[in-house]
């Protein structure tokens, strides 16, 4: 582990001003499951580590009918996985949370950390993107809300500016007849990173797709919304031919790389297969809802 100065602010204001002051030399710690590993490997060498755990109000879930779900940045993945409210209203998030790491990791890892780490293969972004989530960001000049699909800029890069902290994720209320799914392809049954991850959320009306959001993980520098696939589906009955074409469209938008977890070619092909499957499963669940 590298040597660093440890900061433990006790209010959001103090945290923001410390991050602002030490910008470029500070790493913000939430659950620490990614950060500590990289500190130990000496991959990152921050002068300061700022732990958010004593900042009140960043933790926990609140759901209000008609308004949606607010997820504090420090809410653990395990909380998302096991929350009855999440399971009832946003089951895709609970599903995805349950596929992240091990129970031990999920007990520490947070939603905020998972998003701010901005790993292309991260587990939480696809589901949140598919539900149309927004990020509430607090910074030196006040706060702002950013749609999550503008949050990620590249591997490890987010839209957070000097002094900014992610405070909360806001997930809007779903329309009636909405359902979704997260499909993760990985070598092991657990404790693995996605080779490809696909989330789809579909809203039906009169048997047709009223709205639909698809999000892909691990196939581009950031989690990706294949808009052309969504556009194909919107307003149409979700028949097998259309689902196949949506898969094709998603595949064409994916820009995967070849790495130790899979080849670009295989990943592209799997985007097609898994998008088709995700849309089909979301459709079936929405029909049954």
């Amino acid at each position: 582990m590298v040597r660093f100065e440890y900061l433990e602010p006790t209010s959001l204001g103090e945290a923001v001003s410390l991050v602002d002051r030490h910008w470029g030399q500070v790493r913000v710690m939430a659950g620490g499951t990614d950060l500590l590993v990289r500190l130990k490997q000496r991959v990152i060498r921050p002068q300061y580590v700022l732990n958010l755990k004593r900042v009140p109000g960043l933790d926990g879930l609140t759901y209000a009918k008609g308004q949606g779900l607010r997820i504090g940045a420090l809410t653990t993945i395990r909380t998302i996985e096991t929350s009855p409210v999440v399971k009832e209203h946003y089951p895709v998030l609970a599903e995805a949370a349950g596929m992240l790491g091990s129970v031990q990791v999920r007990n520490l890892a947070t939603v905020g950390g998972n998003l701010c780490n901005a790993s292309p293969s991260a587990e939480m972004p696809p589901g949140l993107l598919a539900y149309g989530a927004q990020a509430r960001i607090v910074g030196p000049k006040g706060e702002r809300t950013v749609p999550l699909d503008q949050f990620f800029l590249g591997p490890g890069q987010t839209c957070l500016l000097q002094g900014d902290l992610l405070a909360e994720v806001l997930v809007p209320e779903s329309a009636p007849k909405t359902a979704g799914v997260y499909i993760k392809l990985s070598p092991r049954a657990a404790m693995d990173c996605a080779v490809v991850g696909v989330a789809a959320v579909v809203t039906l009306e009169d048997g047709k797709c009223k709205d639909c959001r698809i999000a892909l993980g691990a196939v581009a520098p950031t989690p990706l919304r294949p808009r052309s696939a969504e556009d194909l589906l919107r307003g149409k009955p979700l028949d097998p031919g259309l689902r196949e074409r949506a898969g094709q469209a998603a595949m064409e938008e994916a820009k995967p790389i070849t790495d130790v977890r899979g080849s670009a070619e295989y990943r592209k092909e799997m985007v097609k297969v898994l998008t088709r499957r995700a849309v089909q499963q979301a459709f079936q669940r929405a029909m049954a809802s």
Partner: peptide, 11 residues
Amino acid sequence: LLDYHQPTAAD
């Protein structure tokens, strides 16, 4: 051990 894939109990 994230990318060197030994089986877990679930496998």
